[in-house]
Nucleic acid binder design. Sequence first.
DNA 1: AAAGCGGGGTG
DNA 2: CACCCAGCTTT
Length: 311
Amino acid sequence: MTTTTDSRADALREAVVAWFDDAARDLPWRHPDRTPWGVLVSETMLQQTPVVRVEPVWRTWLERWPTPADLAAAPTADVLRAWGRLGYPRRALRLQECARVIVREHGGEVPDDEAALRALPGVGEYTAAAVRAFAFGRRAVVVDTNVRRVLARAVAGEALPRPTPTAAERALAAGLVPSSDGDAARWAAASMELGALVCTARAPDCAACPVRDLCAWRAAGHPPDAHAARRRTQPWHGTDRQVRGRVMALLRDASGPVERERLLLVADDAAQVGRCLASLVEDGLAETPPDEPDLFALPGGDTSGGGAGTD
DNA sequence: AAAGCGGGGTG
DNA sequence: CACCCAGCTTT
């Protein structure tokens, strides 16, 4: 991949980075004393969860489990409770498994190369690139939802990127990444921040945008979203996801196993709840104590010999 | 390529 | 109430 070197690309990169120097949020995972592990934890928590909700959980999490070895050794029930309401609790499971792989295969240190990062549970293309850039200051093509939107507007002249990324889109993003490690890492953080703070999805603040005079979307008169018809808003009310979430909330708040009968009350459709309980067990998010098929608890959280778990 | 997977803040 | 959020995994 070659870096685009035309003057317009240069102007875009320089304007965004200069803006970032002044406008960057003071986020804890950007502090000088952060560790690669802290960055990996933040990136995992930030997968589909907004910054404001992640920040307090990240602080207590890193205080409690400052290294991969600490998280690897923790009871999974404690991990799921600490994850709280961040959503997608399978991420917490994968993060703990990730910690165990790091301990087992990487001497307890977060790896810094692309292939090793991608091999970690829960680490995909974006997270691997983000860890390389933000934890190690290395060059990486970091393309998240913010960067996709910024490039869709500023370069492609569209209101929003298409629902699923294309090869052309990633090539465009790759071509804009500066060649040096330091510049590339700064560009990654800056382009993401611009999308998060100024070039937002709902109400972009074009008047405050450092690249407003370079923006193809603005130059075209802010045409509407060309891909709107192909977007599907995911249902929520009455779905398995909602029911699973309610079950998990109950299990988190209980100090011990919970009776199936009580869990069935989270929704009108008992069959649906039963299906969700089975899927949660299948996913490793819940388990039934030995010879107790009508009790459910968070995994590895068995504290006593079986008495009724009272809050 | 598309579906499944949480939860809550916001216009 | 629809939409969105520093995505990943599986089909």
